[in-house]
Deep mutational scan, measured.
Amino acid sequence: KLCLVCSDEASGCHYGVLTCGSCKVFFKRAVEGQHNYLCAGRNDCIIDKIRRKNCPACRYRKCLQAGMNLEARKTK
């Protein structure tokens, strides 16, 4: 099974979405830290295992598009 954000090996369902541990922690920190990420490109950066750290804005956008939600952990 692959992470729906970066296509690395998924470690489980986190915040409602099948993700790897790295994307799970990234999403939690992004939401709780209330980061205002900005993409230096055109908001279409490739997010994969190798390049997932290059653009936090696009990675966060991809987390949201996949359906990640901090509240999902509280309902399970």
Rank of each mutant, 00 (worst) to 15 (best):
K1Q: 04
K1D: 12
L2S: 11
L2P: 03
L2N: 15
C3I: 02
L4H: 05
V5Q: 00
V5F: 00
C6E: 00
C6N: 01
S7I: 01
S7T: 11
S7G: 13
D8E: 10
D8K: 04
D8W: 03
D8L: 02
E9C: 15
E9V: 14
E9T: 15
A10V: 03
A10Q: 06
A10K: 03
A10I: 05
S11P: 06
S11E: 15
S11C: 06
S11Q: 14
S11T: 15
G12V: 05
G12T: 08
C13K: 11
C13G: 05
C13D: 12
H14C: 06
Y15L: 05
Y15T: 09
Y15E: 08
Y15H: 07
Y15M: 12
G16D: 07
G16S: 05
V17Y: 03
V17Q: 04
V17R: 05
L18D: 15
L18A: 15
L18N: 06
L18P: 12
L18C: 06
T19K: 01
T19V: 11
T19F: 03
T19A: 10
C20H: 00
C20K: 00
C20N: 01
C20L: 00
G21P: 12
G21R: 07
K24M: 07
K24A: 11
K24S: 15
K24E: 13
K24L: 05
V25G: 13
V25R: 15
V25N: 07
V25Q: 13
V25C: 14
F26N: 01
F26T: 00
F26R: 01
F26K: 00
F26W: 03
F27I: 04
F27R: 02
F27S: 02
K28W: 06
K28Y: 12
K28I: 08
R29P: 02
R29G: 08
R29N: 12
A30E: 05
A30I: 08
A30S: 07
A30W: 05
V31Y: 10
V31G: 10
E32D: 11
E32M: 09
E32I: 06
E32R: 11
G33I: 06
G33D: 15
Q34H: 05
Q34Y: 05
H35Y: 07
H35T: 10
H35W: 07
N36L: 10
N36H: 09
N36C: 05
N36M: 13
Y37R: 04
Y37I: 07
Y37P: 06
L38P: 05
C39R: 00
C39T: 02
C39E: 02
C39G: 01
A40P: 08
A40M: 08
A40F: 07
G41H: 09
G41V: 09
G41D: 09
G41Y: 06
R42P: 04
R42T: 14
R42A: 13
R42N: 15
N43C: 04
N43Y: 12
N43V: 04
N43K: 13
N43H: 07
N43A: 10
D44V: 09
D44R: 07
C45H: 05
C45P: 00
I46R: 11
I46D: 12
I46Q: 15
I46C: 10
I46W: 05
I46L: 09
I47C: 03
I47E: 04
I47W: 02
D48F: 03
D48Q: 03
D48Y: 05
D48N: 14
K49E: 06
K49D: 05
K49Q: 10
K49H: 09
I50M: 15
I50S: 13
I50K: 13
I50Y: 05
R51V: 08
R51M: 14
R52E: 10
R52W: 06
R52Y: 03
K53I: 07
K53Y: 10
K53M: 12
K53S: 12
N54P: 04
N54V: 10
C55N: 01
C55E: 01
C55R: 00
C55Y: 02
P56S: 10
P56R: 07
A57G: 08
C58Q: 01
C58T: 01
C58I: 01
R61H: 07
R61G: 08
R61V: 15
R61L: 12
R61C: 06
K62A: 11
K62E: 04
K62Y: 05
C63P: 01
C63G: 08
C63A: 04
C63R: 01
C63S: 03
L64R: 07
Q65L: 10
Q65C: 06
A66S: 08
A66H: 09
G67F: 03
G67S: 03
M68R: 01
M68P: 00
M68Y: 04
M68I: 03
M68D: 01
N69Q: 08
N69T: 13
L70K: 10
L70W: 10
L70H: 13
E71H: 07
E71R: 07
E71T: 07
E71V: 12
E71M: 15
A72V: 09
A72Y: 13
A72S: 08
A72R: 09
A72E: 14
R73Q: 08
R73S: 12
R73V: 11
K74D: 15
K74V: 12
K74C: 10
K74W: 11
K74F: 15
K74A: 10
T75S: 13
T75Q: 06
T75M: 12
T75C: 07
T75N: 13
K76S: 15
K76H: 06
K76D: 13
K76A: 14
